[in-house]
Write a protein that binds this DNA or RNA. Sequence first.
DNA 1: GTCTATAAGGAGATAGAC
DNA 2: GTCTATCTCCTTATAGAC
Lengths: 218, 218
Amino acid sequence: MSEASTKDLILDAAEQQFADKGFAGTSLRAIMKNADVNMASIHYHFGSKEALIEAVVRRIAEPINRERLALLDDLEASHPEGELPLRGVIVAFLTPVKRLYAHPRGRTFFPRLMGRMTMEAGEELSPVMASIFGETGARFMAALGRAVPHLDSEEVFWRLHFAIGAMAFAIAAPGIHHHNVHSITEPPDPGTSFDRLVNFVTAGMEAPAPTVTRKANK
Amino acid sequence: MSEASTKDLILDAAEQQFADKGFAGTSLRAIMKNADVNMASIHYHFGSKEALIEAVVRRIAEPINRERLALLDDLEASHPEGELPLRGVIVAFLTPVKRLYAHPRGRTFFPRLMGRMTMEAGEELSPVMASIFGETGARFMAALGRAVPHLDSEEVFWRLHFAIGAMAFAIAAPGIHHHNVHSITEPPDPGTSFDRLVNFVTAGMEAPAPTVTRKANK
DNA sequence: GTCTATAAGGAGATAGAC
DNA sequence: GTCTATCTCCTTATAGAC
């Protein structure tokens, strides 16, 4: 059940390379070399580079979304009526991502891949991403609608995307920890970073609605 | 002065392709074909693909940073002492990006490239990005320090990065306008989108500081 | 399932005529 | 400055032995 099969070796190596060099920037040869498997075995197990990308992305995203939805289920179960606590919704969305930092497969490339998926997933990967994140997105849109009921759905939509962007960039931006803009010496602590992000996003979600120059609440 | 030189044709085509396919995903041949110039002319004018990437990135980023710093200069000149208005600092940072939407070179690939630069700029491009954004980053870090003086510099650093992530993702995420999570029918209006972003970021910056479990204000 | 070998084409880069 | 032609290497993918 927990043997390191060739398939898993390939997935692990691909994940690392994709996180580091991007999807287009990674060659199957680099993956092969890194996983110490044969070139042809990648095609045997996955069929094509594109299919391998999808497999890697799904392996990461699906557990995250499952946990997100489970946490949201719990929250909704304890608040069957009326407003949902905003911070609770945000914590449900972000907690599974926080866990990535402590993931056995590594603490740097793993989160970075999340960011790449989010930002680099144009073109052909787009329908895949939609099928992976569609349900979760819709569920959290609805939950946020209950948490900040004074906002119309378009406003909620954008704020959710701002939140995702803040998360993905803070997690994925290369070299962000070396910037040293102002002599920052301490290593990033997952717990504190997570609290920072939750605070920022919660406050952003609670911001006053902009004066819309068009029709109001849809 | 405003002739469409070969160099400019290459830069325009490269910019579009990079925004669409990413840096690694774009071949010089695609750029050549799109710009209707000769393969060799790219090397004649720029020397290498890497140098072309840097030229494209600089052409976009430098005017933005110049305008950011000019707006910040104005703001600081009118507030020589004491606190800076937070919203003013944020507007100075984001306004030049807003302008991209109305840029003659296009309203989709141009902003998307900003996002790619921000997210995909690992590895060898990193020092280039640092040289481009270093001064601007430091200036805005300092300005934010005056705008939210109760926060320590590490907190400010992270919040600035959350803001950049929110901006880059909202601007660059592919297919974000088609998501249709909740029957969003209206086309995105630059003015309103900008206000949404400014409101979100300002509120996030004003969030209460997290309870730090380590040493306080550095 | 895993290997070797190789196909078939795309990549960045350059030499040298004009 | 621009072109054609070409070099060399790397890419994905597959055929076929084991």
